[in-house]
Design a protein around this nucleic acid. Structure first.
Lengths: 198, 198
DNA sequence: ATCATAAGTAAACAAACATTTACTTACTTT
DNA sequence: AAAGTAAGTAAATGTTTGTTTACTTATGAT
């Protein structure tokens, strides 16, 4: 039996992310993707059931999965509060700097109903990547280091500013300004940490 | 001359937002919109040049414009820091609670290249709705009340958590949990304020 | 060497797409 | 009351969509 050409599989993923980032999710079509990847449309259907399946797998495996793995690198729930948060921010910044196209699909996950649903179902099935961070926060809350809030609020306060800054960072690359430096990112992280400390 | 039927114009806007919120931007078609609004496709083209024009005008006028107006209500640059931020958060929460569909298109503005571009160009042309908030922050930074950061960092730290919490709030409405109460929203706002205070 | 088989292709499919054409309707102006 | 006109409709335009059909190719197993 003829083996799969792994280069072609990767081309599908890479170029799909590229089209989504540059032209938008609403402008990705199977035929456009096939042409850009220099393959036949049929080839996409060997790996993916249909377009929805492709999008969900791209989002869940390629983007969410890789991000979650990257953000938890060298992090563990026993760290000091400030140290742990800093590590998570640094990891997120580094990962997305090197995966700009993934960042855009990540953002689509917050608006597209299809992807948002996949995100929620994944959290239930795979048991929430947030678990170590959850333990980390709960421990510091119990110890009285930080103020007590629901996990969702922690998530919002601690991480959404990082996403916003990364978005701004990419904007800076396109335009003639250079606002979001490592220093600004680090100072912002400090501010966020301070807000939660008791 | 026969006058425009304003009800039909509003139906187009309302139902377009509804389809986008429920099925996604990538699943809005002119024919689907026309059928759902009980009009002929041609009628959409009386008011809007084409689909892109419709989307941009929906996003800029209907969503961004209304949001910016709502968030600045009873706010002015001379307020105390904590008071001002609280007002902005309260305004944002109230506005989106009553305009759930607008919130989804707002989120698409952070991922869709078409909408993101429109957002940036609007800021340049209309002179940035953020101006009063900008003055407010600059004043408190100069007075030594808050730490000095670029405007983009202020924006990220102060407002992106509010968006995230609003998103979570809508999620709570769908699922059997009730986490994001006014209290949690208010406590989160306090944490964000404290983080920026010197 | 050749066979079996899944990978891969090019071309086609109906359905859905954005937009237009040809026409009718309803209201203001005269 | 009649005329003029933009609003509005139903149906059709050609194009693009997601997906499939019918066929070819490359490779591990025999």
């Amino acid at each position: 039996m003829r083996p799969k050409n792994l280069e072609k599989e990767e081309a599908i993923r890479t170029i799909a992310l590229q089209i989504i980032a540059e032209e938008g999710l609403e402008n990705l079509s199977m035929q456009k993707l096939a042409k850009a990847a220099n393959i036949s449309p049929r080839t996409i259907y060997i790996k993916y059931e249909n377009k929805e399946d492709l999008l969900i797998k791209l989002f869940v495996d390629e983007v969410l999965g890789a991000y979650e793995k990257a953000i938890l690198e060298k992090f563990n729930a026993d760290m000091e509060f400030a140290e742990g948060v800093k590590r998570l921010w640094t990891n997120a910044f580094r990962y997305f700097k090197n995966n700009r196209h993934a960042f855009v699909l990540m953002q689509y996950g917050k608006s597209s109903p299809l992807l948002y649903k996949a995100y929620q179902e994944r959290d239930i099935k795979e048991g929430d990547y947030f678990a170590p961070i959850h333990r980390f926060l709960e421990r510091h809350a119990k110890a009285g280091v930080i103020r007590k809030l629901p996990q969702e609020a922690y998530r919002a306060i601690l991480f959404s500013p990082a996403f916003d800054l990364i978005n701004e960072y990419f904007d800076c690359l396109n335009r003639p300004k250079q606002l979001i430096t490592e220093k600004v990112f680090s100072d912002s992280c400090d501010a966020v940490i301070k807000g939660l400390l008791k």
